[in-house]
Amino acid sequence: MNAEVETGRPAATRTYRRPMSAGWWTTKRHYFWYMVREFTALPLALWLLWLLYEIQRAGRGASGYYPPSSTPFVVFSAICLLFALYHSFTFLSLAGVILHFKVLDKPVPSRLIVLSQFGGWLVASVVIGAVLIGFGR
C-alpha cells in the first residue's frame, strides 16, 4: 500500500494513509515469530514432496529404494525436523484456543485440550518410532 493523500475531497476532510513497510514483521517479536511459524510450512512442504517421490520410487521394489545420504540433504532434513517440531508445537498449542466443546455440560479447559494434544503427539511418535524400528530389524 502506498502513502497517499486522498484527493478529490475538501482540504479539511482530506486524509493521509500511511504506508505499511515491507519489514512490518520485524517491528515486533510477536510478528516475527508469527512469520517464522508461517514460514516453517515451506521447507516442510518441500521435504514432504521429496518423501512422496521416494515412496513412488520405492514402489518399484527394493532396487528403487536408495535414500539420499549426502551431507547437504542430511543438513536440510535436520533443519526441516526443527521446523516441523516448531510448527507442531505452535499448532498443538493453538488448538486450545480453537477447540471448544463441553463434557457433561461443562466446557473443557483449554489447558486440558492442549495437554491431551501433546499427549497424543507423544503416543503417536512412540508408536511410529516402534513400528519403524521393529520393521528395520
Binding site: 482540504a11 476532510t13 493521509y16
Partner: peptide, 10 residues
C-alpha cells in the same frame, strides 16, 4: 502533527 490544509505528510 498533520494539517490536511498545509502538510503533505505527517
Amino acid at each position: 502533527r498533520y494539517d490536511p490544509e498545509k502538510d503533505k505528510a505527517p
